[in-house]
């Protein structure tokens, strides 16, 4: 099966800093791919390149066979930024209905998306009156409503109650089972174990691009946190 996202030799500079340095990878379709790495490792920049809002220095990003950000992709790719990007002065329902309209969907789909993130009871509340976690979920609902084939989620579970986090991950897998491709960033290792595939990013380069089982096997430990640590040390020894 063709990859949903193909990144080839991607180089991105921000200011004078090289954020991504010749990164290449593929994201398989119909799976949840986790993008892990510390803050500043280039996760958000890579995601922005995938949705086509990042100025890139060189390299290519292809999504569903089209160059990232091309007009044909805008109804097929959904993006949720790390900071909730919804209108604070609108209700949850009004936000969802607006983004539904932009994707040619109706009020029914909007209400379903709001319910899917567990905000049905808060649908009539202004976003500015919600908690941080609820705002994040409202933002997620606005991406789900377009039923995108590729869903790019930047740290969607930050600050969430553990029960809700589990529920959201179950939803991500349900979406993948229905054929969607998800690229989800996180810096929480217990979420890494929930992914079908892992990309470990450090200082703008990939340390690992494998399934969780392969990462564990390569590092010789069952604990993913420990496995990543060993991979980082191994890489540093090679460099030294």
């Amino acid at each position: 099966m063709d990859a949903a996202v193909t990144v080839t030799d991607l180089v991105v500079d921000r200011g004078h800093r090289r954020v991504l340095d010749g990164l290449s990878t593929t994201v398989p379709p119909g799976q949840v791919t986790g993008l892990l790495g510390p803050s500043g490792s280039g996760k958000t920049t890579l995601m922005r390149a995938v949705v086509g809002v990042q100025v890139v220095r060189s390299g290519t990003v292809t999504v569903l066979g089209e160059p990232a950000g091309s007009p044909a992709l805008r109804s097929r790719v959904g993006y949720v930024t790390q900071a909730p990007s919804v209108y604070a002065d609108l209700t949850v329902r009004e936000n969802a209905r607006y983004f539904a309209a932009l994707h040619g969907r109706g009020a029914k789909e909007a209400d379903a998306a709001v319910a899917a993130v567990g905000l049905a009871a808060a649908a009539g509340q202004l976003v500015e009156d919600l908690s941080g976690g609820q705002r994040g979920r409202a933002s997620l609902a606005c991406a789900l409503v377009g039923e995108p084939e590729v869903l790019v989620l930047d740290e969607p579970t930050v600050g969430l109650d553990p029960v809700l986090r589990v529920e959201l991950w179950e939803r991500f897998h349900a979406l993948a089972a229905a054929g969607a491709t998800l690229l989800v960033s996180s810096h929480v290792m217990d979420e890494a174990a929930r992914c079908d595939r892992l990309l470990l990013l450090r200082d703008g380069a990939l340390l690992a691009d494998a399934t969780p089982a392969e990462v564990r096997a390569e590092a010789g430990t069952d604990d993913l946190e420990d496995a990543f640590l060993r991979l980082i040390r191994a890489r540093e020894e090679v460099a030294a």
Partner: peptide, 11 residues
């Protein structure tokens, strides 16, 4: 608020 960037990824 990031909504502009988001809008630019919609149709």
């Amino acid at each position: 608020s990031g909504t502009l960037e988001r809008l630019l990824t919609t149709p």
